[in-house]
Design a protein around this nucleic acid. Structure first.
Length: 108
DNA sequence: GTGTTGACAATCA
DNA sequence: CTGATTGCCAACA
């Protein structure tokens, strides 16, 4: 479970994560850039601590690769939401098609 | 106050 | 495509 007490920074990150609509994703760097406060690593750390309360599968790496250790879970969500996926030659999911799925701001 | 760590990112080979 | 390197910055010991 969640240990400790979320900081203001953490709550802000979670708020943005919740603003991501289904079928879309944001990279860690995008969130950091949108807040203009920290860096991608801080965003990732926040989600690792308190990400269980939000749609953590909508926050991924900038290159579209999925979360290590939670790939199976994430792909199931993407198929359910219709998130654009990037597949390999054998049909295996290689990651998310960032070109189409990337979400810029909660307004667009 | 100092050093280490980390769900990262951009660049280079 | 993969791997190595460097930069980044809040949290923690």
């Amino acid at each position: 479970m969640v240990t400790g007490h979320p900081t203001d920074f953490a709550e802000r990150v979670l708020g943005i994560a919740e603003s991501i609509p289904p079928g879309r994703v944001m990279s860690y760097g995008d969130i950091a850039e949108y807040m203009g406060e920290a860096g991608p690593r801080q965003v990732g750390r926040v989600l690792s601590q308190w990400g269980g309360g939000v749609a953590w599968w909508r926050v991924i790496h900038a290159d579209g690769s999925l979360l290590a250790g939670h790939e199976r879970e994430a792909v199931a969500r993407y198929l359910e939401e219709g998130t654009p996926l990037r597949r390999g030659r054998d049909g295996a999911v290689s990651g998310v098609d960032m070109r189409r799925a990337r979400w810029l701001t909660p307004d667009r």
